[in-house]
Structures are given as structure tokens and as C-alpha cells.
Amino acid sequence: MTPEPYTCDLDQDTETILKMYLFENVLNVKDIRNNIVQGKWNCAAIKPSLILDKFQVAVAANRAVVAEKTQTMVTRTPYAEILYNLSLTKNISQSLSKFGIEKGNNLLVCFLVKPGKDDCEEIVNQIDGDMCQISDLHKFTDMEDLKTAYKLSNLTEDVDLLDLIVSRMVTKNFVSY
């Protein structure tokens, strides 16, 4: 049985659905990255080690499609905007290199699907790796890297980490961390 992607409706006015696929043991990471950078593939490839929960990506994707609709994107594509929105930094190249794939063999692939335009299957079929259930995402999270990326060094036990991360993501334009 092939794992199903995670799907989530984004802002209603954008008529966009987020689809996420999780892969491990990917052998063609370099080709995937090149296809995305060259604009051949319309998707975002994210390091799952920096993702605590799929909600984190859904928030970043929702902000990206709203920015695209209102023509306020900071980056060139909504997929780069997802990576930018995941990061705390306002530096685009740092955001893309920190959250985008470069090496490693695990990845989280995100698609923004609009009515009548869904090329997910064509791209997913070209990924040479093992597709996993999105519910396994927590197994790929590297807590030390995550805490470093979101500057979460002095936390108490009773803090909801996901709430804190999402709050920091959406307030990066107003607060310096």
C-alpha cells in the first residue's frame, strides 16, 4: 500500500491545497534540487529534520500563497516563499539553504495545488526513494537542529514547542530573535 500524501486546504481566497509527501533513502537528491532550482519542478523540498509537525509547513505554505495572491512575496516563487517563511531569518539565501535540501537522503516535498493543475504524481514518481507515512514525520526531526534553527535553548518542560516555533515564524518581521 502506497502512503497517502497529507493534504490541507489553505486560505479560501487562494483556492489552493497543500500536498506533502515524506521520503527517506532518497538517491537522487542532487537531481531533485537541480530540477527545483532550474524551475522544472514546481514544489518545495524541505529538510524534515527541521520540521516538528506538518502544521508548521501548512502555516508557511498558507503565508506563501497569501503573499503570492497579494503580490507581497519576498522571494521569486511561492515554493521558495515556503522555505523563507519556515525560517526566522529575513535573509533569503540563508532561509533557502537552511530549510531546503542540499545533501542528506530524507526529504519532505510540498506542492501547492490549484484547481485544474496538479502535477504532483508526475514529480513524485521521479523521486528515487521510499515514500513514508506523513505520520512518521516526527521520526525525522532532529531536536538539536530544530532548537538551534529556532533559537530555543532555554526552554522549560511545560512549553508547547510547536506553538512557540509557529509564533516565531509568523512574527519574524516584527521581532528580532
Rank of each mutant, 00 (worst) to 15 (best):
I92Y: 06
F23T: 07
G100N: 07
T14I: 03
C120A: 14
M73G: 03
Q56P: 06
I101T: 06
I92Q: 09
Y150N: 01
K69I: 04
V124E: 05
C120E: 11
L83S: 01
C120D: 12
S87K: 05
K151N: 11
T72C: 08
G39L: 11
K47Y: 03
M169F: 07
K117A: 15
V124K: 04
T7S: 13
Q126C: 08
L52I: 13
N25K: 14
M143L: 13
K139S: 13
Y21A: 03
L161N: 00
A67G: 04
F55G: 12
D128T: 09
Q12G: 13
G100A: 02
D158H: 11
E144P: 00
S87N: 02
Q71S: 14
A64H: 04
L108S: 05
S167K: 11
Y21E: 11
P78A: 10
K98N: 03
L96H: 06
V113S: 10
L107T: 00
D130W: 14
A80S: 13
H138P: 00
G39T: 09
A60L: 08
L137Q: 05
L152Q: 02
W41M: 12
Q133N: 15
N35S: 14
Y21K: 03
L52V: 12
S93C: 08
D119P: 02
F174N: 10
T2N: 15
Q126S: 10
C132R: 15
I82T: 01
I82Q: 01
V29E: 06
N62P: 05
M20L: 15
L88A: 08
Y84G: 01
A45K: 05
K139A: 13
G39M: 10
G104Q: 07
Q56Y: 10
L96T: 05
V37S: 07
D142I: 11
D128R: 13
I101F: 05
L27A: 10
E15Q: 15
I165M: 07
F23Y: 08
Q12H: 14
D9T: 09
Y84T: 00
T156A: 14
P115W: 04
E68A: 13
E144Q: 11
T77R: 05
Y150L: 04
Q126G: 05
A61M: 03
T141P: 02
T75F: 08
D160K: 12
V113M: 11
F111D: 08
E4H: 14
G39H: 10
Q12P: 00
S176G: 10
K30D: 09
Q38P: 00
K172C: 04
S167Y: 14
E81M: 02
I51K: 02
N25M: 06
K172V: 01
G116P: 05
Q38I: 15
K114R: 15
K151Q: 11
V109I: 11
T75R: 06
V26E: 06
V175K: 09
V59N: 01
P5H: 05
A44C: 09
I36E: 03
K69P: 00
L22S: 05
Y150T: 02
M20Y: 06
Y150A: 08
E157F: 12
N106R: 14
K98I: 07
I36S: 06
L22Q: 08
C8E: 14
